[in-house]
Nucleic acid binder design. Structure first.
Lengths: 160, 160
DNA sequence: TATTGTTATACTCTATAACTATA
DNA sequence: TATAGTTATAGAGTATAACAATA
């Protein structure tokens, strides 16, 4: 049924990867591995955050607001590379959970100054701990040195 | 649990933030860095594949079919960790572009045996070259050693 | 009874345009 | 005019359930 990878039209046959069911040249691309990694992580993380009534986006926004008190919605959107229009529902959701508050900015009456509530700070700290445990689970099969190396390289990548 | 407080930036009582916007503790999580990396890569890759009338999913399916001639749709879905139901539209799209063909499997009359056309093989090879150039662009700011290390670690991660 | 391909459905995420009120 | 927040909308991508034909 499934034949070993063979290339009828003389395609390049290099590729050190041979899986039980080979997905061809895909694992040769680092971008594909990053995607697959994210899919795996995202599925586990979704379940973790579900226990706190948070989505991945709302957790990100909460984290940015805590890191930058009195930030406005547009700047949060820019920090997370998402659209301003998408911020509305997320801030609504976080405000509905009493985790952050919209207060009017003193200098600009168009904008809100976002600030986390005490409940927001406390929940954020608990979620942080849960995510640390989640990552320990995800990265259980690679060494601490490799994990640190991965972190450093990715940090360099996203900041470049 | 006490906070490690190794957050690079983002103090809590600076008043109105108009200086650099940090995203708080988010970059401490490797999963977040993987997500941000994927978003960056995905945006560039989308434009690359657009020039070939391909989506990321259809390119993945084409690649798997070429790597595994006469594979059926369910096995492709399993190889890519996507749902069987999502395969239908992708295979329809690839067949419409005359890149792959659905032929009846000899052993199982329920299933199709997927096989790439000559046009499919040729396009796949051109897209491969384009993706290699795309990745060279994406990883331009990290060293070859780091890039190789990244690839090795991610491969270990997705296979574990 | 289980599986393959299929359809329908829904939910999330993302992207765009346009509107209001302020600047 | 330009910007902050908002609304509406449309398009992907993903997930689930159910069905007919076949195993």
């Amino acid at each position: 049924m499934t034949k070993p990878a063979q290339t009828p039209t003389g395609t390049a046959q290099d590729g050190p990867v041979s899986s039980p069911i080979s997905n061809s040249a895909l694992p040769d691309f680092t971008g594909y591995l990053i995607k697959r990694s994210w899919v795996t992580i995202q599925r586990d993380l979704r379940d973790v955050l579900l226990g706190f009534d948070l989505s991945q986006r709302s957790m990100s926004v909460l984290s940015v607001v805590i890191g930058n008190p009195d930030i406005n919605q547009s700047d949060v959107a820019a920090a997370l590379s998402i659209e301003r229009s998408g911020m509305v529902v997320i801030v609504d959701e976080l405000e509905g959970l009493d985790l952050i508050r919209r207060t009017r900015a003193a200098t600009d009456r168009r904008a809100y100054a976002l600030r986390a509530t005490l409940k927001g700070h406390q929940l954020h700290e608990r979620v942080r701990a849960a995510i640390i445990a989640h990552e320990d689970r995800i990265f259980a099969n690679i060494s601490p040195a490799e994990r640190a190396s991965l972190h450093t390289i990715l940090l360099k990548l996203v900041e470049g």
